Amino acid sequence: MRNPTPFIQKMDQAGIMPIFFNPNETICLKLLEAAYEGGIRVIEMVNRGKEAPSIFPALRKMADQMPGLSLGIGTIYHTWEAEIFLDMGTEFIVAPVMNPKLGEYCQKTETPWIPGCGTVSEVFFAQELGAELVKIYPANVLTPEFVKAVHAVLPKVEIIPTGGVEPTAESIKTWFDAGVLCVGMGSQLFKKELIAKRAFTEIKETIADALAIIEAIKN
Rank of each mutant, 00 (worst) to 15 (best):
T162G: 01
L211T: 00
F124M: 05
L181A: 10
T162E: 01
T201N: 15
S187W: 04
L32T: 07
I172C: 13
I16K: 02
P57H: 05
A35Q: 07
N219W: 06
P67I: 00
F56D: 03
E145V: 11
G49C: 08
K30T: 06
W80S: 11
K108W: 04
C117D: 00
L189A: 04
E33K: 15
E37M: 00
E215H: 05
V120Q: 01
A152S: 15
G116L: 02
L86N: 15
F56R: 02
G15P: 00
E91P: 07
N47K: 08
P23G: 04
E132V: 06
L211C: 04
F176P: 12
V165M: 02
A14T: 12
P18L: 14
F125W: 09
A212K: 14
P100E: 10
F125Y: 12
K61E: 14
D12E: 04
I195G: 11
K191M: 14
G89V: 02
N22S: 09
T26K: 03
E33D: 12
A52K: 03
S121G: 00
E51Y: 14
A14L: 12
L59K: 02
R2V: 15
V141Y: 05
A95R: 06
A58I: 10
W80G: 08
T5L: 01
A152G: 13
Q65L: 11
A169M: 15
G89I: 01
E51A: 11
E44W: 14
P53I: 06
A208G: 04
G89S: 04
L129N: 08
T109R: 12
H151P: 00
I8T: 10
A178C: 01
R198S: 14
I217D: 07
G186I: 12
K61N: 12
N99G: 01
L133I: 11
F190H: 11
G89D: 01
P18S: 14
M45Q: 02
A178E: 04
M45V: 06
F92R: 06
P161Q: 05
L86E: 14
R198I: 08
T174Q: 05
A169F: 15
I40R: 06
